[in-house]
């Protein structure tokens, strides 16, 4: 019995998976172990990792396997868990332990609710942890790291690339006004543009706004967009899904304007106005303008 943490080479979240794994191992009173791809091993493919880790897990026989919920984990960990007749408990934000039985907390409905999930049956069970939920600790206690060598794969991957150079560098902006689906249609974008202008801010957006082409992709904030940490981030009509939050939660001050008082964005906001953005944003612009021209 042990807790086995799967490390992703070079990924910042590996240290968080490690911290989570250590917490789980202590609570369960079992040793902590880790696995990572062998140096110089073939690049990642889902087939290659699944086969190699299936072999490793059968050999090590952990009761719990812990991953960081990264894009790579999403790509193969469910397949690996299926080999063991298990479901990956994905994107976990907390864990509780009663008499050696773990219960994992994960978000449902895009963060509107939490759910307690209990793994049933014998281990190994598989969990992936959400970014930021288990802060990395400084110490990296020495444990042996099992290495694995990914095997042959039906998928052939090419080198990662970026689209054409970004013309907008949101990371340098001291103030960002960010717009979400609450804006309803492209024709309404000027409503938030005016606020950005009044504040001297860059305009950013949640993913659906860029998906729809209402603003260019390079203005997207979040896990698949830019990561920003301005001194002021004003989220307008954004619900606060985790994939958006990871891109902006380092902001010094967060303001949320949303008509739903239970929107998850208020969880990380310092200040909020609950109400219709089409009334509030123009009022905000008017107040700013008033103070500029006394």
């Amino acid at each position: 019995m042990s807790v086995l943490v799967i490390l992703e080479t070079g990924h910042r979240m590996s240290a968080e998976a490690w911290a989570a794994g250590r917490q789980f191992a202590e609570a369960l009173g079992v040793p902590l172990r880790a696995a990572a791809p062998a140096e110089g091993a073939a690049p990642y493919t889902p087939d290659g990792y699944t086969a190699a880790l299936e072999e490793l897990i059968r050999r090590v026989a952990p009761s719990l396997v812990v991953f960081a919920h990264t894009y790579q984990t999403r790509d193969y960990a469910p397949k690996l868990a299926t080999r063991f007749g298990r479901v990956l408990i994905s994107d976990v934000i907390a864990a509780g332990f009663e008499n050696g039985a773990p219960v994992f907390v994960r978000q449902l409905f895009q963060g509107k609710f939490n759910a307690d999930i209990r793994p049933a049956g014998d281990g190994p069970h598989f969990v992936s942890i959400q970014a930021g939920a288990f802060p990395a600790t400084a110490d990296a206690a020495a444990v042996d790291i099992e290495t694995f060598t990914p095997s042959a794969s039906r998928q052939k991957s090419e080198a990662p690339f970026r689209e054409s150079a970004r013309e907008v560098d949101l990371t340098a902006a001291p103030i960002i006004v960010s717009v979400g689906r609450g804006i309803k249609e492209q024709a309404n974008i000027p409503v938030v543009e005016k606020l950005a202008q009044a504040l001297g801010a860059e305009l950013a957006a949640s993913r659906p706004i860029c998906d729809a082409g209402w603003l260019p992709m390079e203005r997207q904030v979040g896990s698949s967009g830019q990561t920003v940490s301005p001194k002021l981030y004003v989220a307008v009509g954004i619900s606060g899904a985790i994939q958006h939050l990871v891109g902006m939660k380092g902001s010094k001050t967060v303001v949320a304007i949303n008509q739903d008082p239970n929107a998850p964005i208020f969880e990380i906001a310092d200040y909020g106005i609950v109400g219709d953005l089409f009334e509030i944003v123009p009022a905000l612009v008017a107040e700013i303008d008033k103070s500029k021209s006394p």
Binding site: G85, R86, V87, I89, V103, Q107, L108, G111, K112, F113, N114, A115, D116, I117, R118, P119, A120, G121, H125, N262, P264, E267
Partner: peptide, 15 residues
């Protein structure tokens, strides 16, 4: 197959 994960409780997150 028998369920390997069981949803035991759904609730609003604590603020």
């Amino acid at each position: 197959p028998p369920a390997s994960v069981v949803l035991e409780k759904l609730y609003s997150p604590h603020k």
